[in-house]
């Protein structure tokens, strides 16, 4: 465990806490894509199938459980909680996310480290995580405004991605056996998607204008 990875995990956790706080404090999920949140829940459920078969550390197991529970809790709130449900921007959140799930699964069947149930689902979760933010970006683009907490949520998610890349660079140079090319390439794609968002988010903040993402 290096400092970059720990900081990456912490910012990832903070992003989820910020989102839960926003939903809990404002009883509103306006500006949040349910589809992205559903994809994240699927990502964690598919990736952490090893929770009962491989023990890494207490830290690792606890974080896995926290990520699964918090992502499922967010989806549950947005779907079932009466007040929160009402604030959901359903007509703006129209990205067909099932296509992403299907495409990532087919890709995982083709590109994986080993053709086993667990390995295919692991690769699937990595690919799906890389593109899971797309419905959220589409929603932000359509609504054209980002409230503070939603902005911070996306900011912390982006920080997590950037720190994980530093972690991989660090591990590449310090660990003889480190080769996670599936995770690294997918991570770069994911970070590029965020970089695009950050650029327009920065512009809108600088000009004090509404966030305007190009199609």
């Amino acid at each position: 465990m290096n400092a970059f990875r720990l900081a990456g995990d912490i910012t990832h956790l903070i992003s989820i806490l910020v989102l839960l706080l926003k939903i809990y404090a404002t009883k509103s999920c306006s500006g949040i894509s349910l589809k992205t949140q559903e994809l994240y829940a699927v990502v964690f459920l598919a990736r952490y199938l090893d929770l009962f078969t491989d023990f890494i550390s207490v830290y690792n197991s606890v974080m896995k459980v926290v990520f699964i529970l918090s992502s499922v809790a967010i989806v549950w709130c947005m779907r079932r909680h009466r007040a929160v449900k009402r604030s959901y921007d359903k007509e703006l959140d129209t990205f067909r996310h099932y296509y992403l799930v299907g495409a990532c699964f087919v890709f995982a069947l083709l590109v994986h480290e080993k053709f086993t149930f667990q390995e295919v689902f692991w690769a699937f979760s990595i690919y799906l995580e890389a593109v899971a933010i797309i419905p959220q970006l589409v929603l932000l683009q359509r609504s054209g405004n980002v409230d503070n907490l939603t902005g911070q949520y996306v900011f912390f998610l982006g920080a997590y991605r950037a720190l994980y890349i530093l972690n991989w660079i660090y591990r590449y140079f310090t660990e003889a056996k480190f080769s996670r090319w599936i995770a690294c390439i997918s991570g770069l794609v994911q970070t590029a998607l965020y970089a695009d968002f950050f650029y327009y988010y920065f512009l809108s903040w600088k000009n004090n204008a509404k966030l305007n993402l190009p199609a």
């Binding site: 990875r5 995990d9 990832h12 090893d50 491989d54 890494i56 550390s57 690792n60 974080m63 896995k64 990520f67 480290e113 080993k114 692991w122 994980y164 972690n167 056996k177 480190f178 080769s179 996670r180 995770a183």
Partner: peptide, 10 residues
Amino acid sequence: ELEPPPKDEL
């Protein structure tokens, strides 16, 4: 065949 390293990242 090389044993793949354990998946220790989250």
